[in-house]
Structures are given as C-alpha cells and as structure tokens.
Deep mutational scan, measured.
Amino acid sequence: QAPETKIVDKSRVACDGGEGALGHPRVWLQIPEDTGWVECPYCDCKYVLKGSKADAL
C-alpha cells in the first residue's frame, strides 16, 4: 500500500507510525523551507507543509 500523505500546519512534526504499539519509535521531523515536505525514515509517511510550494502540487 502507498505511504500516507499528511498536510500539516507546522514545519516540525512528530511521527510514531500512528498505530500505537504497532507503530515505530517517535521521531521529530523538520520540514525544509526549500522543499516544503519531509518523509518519515521509518514508515515513509510524507508530511507536506500547508501553503508551501509542495502543497500546491
């Protein structure tokens, strides 16, 4: 199944896999201003900063 994409309001987000005990260790991710998105290294969930150029795609 394809990784999930989430639109977020802040450039710093936490990801834990979203499945409680079945998820992964919580990691904090920083969305770079130049790209407007970041992917979780564990679950490949893509976080897109709302209003960024990546959000316009």
Rank of each mutant, 00 (worst) to 15 (best):
I7D: 02
K46V: 14
L49Y: 07
A14N: 02
D34K: 06
A14L: 10
G18C: 15
W37I: 07
R26H: 02
W28K: 00
W37G: 05
R26D: 00
V38S: 01
A56V: 14
L29Q: 01
K46W: 07
D44M: 15
A56R: 12
V8K: 03
E4A: 14
A21Y: 10
E4G: 15
G20V: 05
S11C: 09
A2W: 13
S52I: 05
L57E: 13
G20N: 05
G20I: 03
G51Y: 07
K46P: 01
G18N: 07
G51F: 04
C15R: 00
G18S: 06
G36E: 03
T35D: 06
P25I: 12
I31S: 01
G23W: 14
V8E: 02
E19H: 06
L57C: 14
G17N: 03
L29S: 01
L57Q: 12
Y47Q: 04
C40M: 09
G18P: 13
A54E: 07
V8Q: 02
E33L: 13
P41Y: 05
A2Y: 13
V38H: 02
I7Q: 03
K46C: 13
G17D: 05
C43G: 00
K53S: 09
G36W: 03
E4W: 15
R26A: 01
H24F: 05
A56W: 14
Y47I: 06
L22F: 12
S11I: 10
A21D: 10
P3G: 12
V27G: 01
P41S: 05
W37M: 07
P41V: 05
C40S: 07
C43V: 01
C15D: 00
H24L: 03
E39W: 14
G20P: 03
C15V: 00
E33D: 08
Y42C: 11
T5S: 08
V38Q: 01
H24S: 02
D44V: 12
T35F: 05
E33V: 10
D44W: 15
V27H: 01
A14T: 07
D55W: 00
T5G: 07
D34I: 06
P25C: 08
T35V: 12
D44E: 12
K50W: 04
C45F: 15
P25E: 10
C15N: 00
Y47G: 11
S11V: 11
Q1N: 12
I7E: 05
Y42N: 06
E39R: 15
E19V: 11
C15F: 00
Y42W: 10
S52F: 03
I7C: 07
V48P: 10
D9E: 12
K53E: 10
Y47M: 03
A2C: 15
Q1C: 15
G36Y: 03
C40G: 07
D34S: 09
Y47A: 04
A14K: 08
A54P: 04
G17R: 01
V27Y: 03
C15A: 00
E19Y: 11
K50C: 14
K46Q: 03
L29V: 02
T5H: 11
A56D: 12
K53T: 09
P3H: 15
V48Q: 05
Y47N: 07
L29C: 06
K10Q: 11
V8I: 06
V48H: 04
I7Y: 12
Q30V: 13
V27L: 06
G17F: 04
L22W: 10
K46F: 07
K6M: 12
A54M: 04
V13R: 01
A54C: 14
D9H: 11
W37R: 01
P32A: 06
A56S: 11
T5L: 11
R12H: 07
L22A: 11
H24C: 01
I31P: 04
R26F: 05
P41Q: 04
C43E: 00
W28S: 00
W28R: 00
P41C: 08
D55H: 01
L57I: 12
G18Q: 08
W37A: 04
S11R: 12
W37E: 05
S11T: 12
A21W: 08
G18D: 04
A2R: 14
T35R: 06
E39N: 12
V38P: 01
V8M: 02
K46T: 06
K50Q: 09
T35P: 10
S52K: 02
I31A: 01
C40Y: 09
A54Q: 06
D16E: 13
G23H: 09
E19G: 14
L49S: 10
C15Y: 00
V13I: 12
K53N: 07
G20W: 06
A21G: 09
A56L: 13
W28V: 01
K46S: 04
E33P: 11
V13L: 07
G20L: 05
G36M: 03
L22P: 06
P25F: 10
R26N: 01
A54T: 05
V48M: 06
I31F: 02
D16N: 05
G51N: 05
L49K: 12
A21V: 11
W37S: 05
Q30G: 02
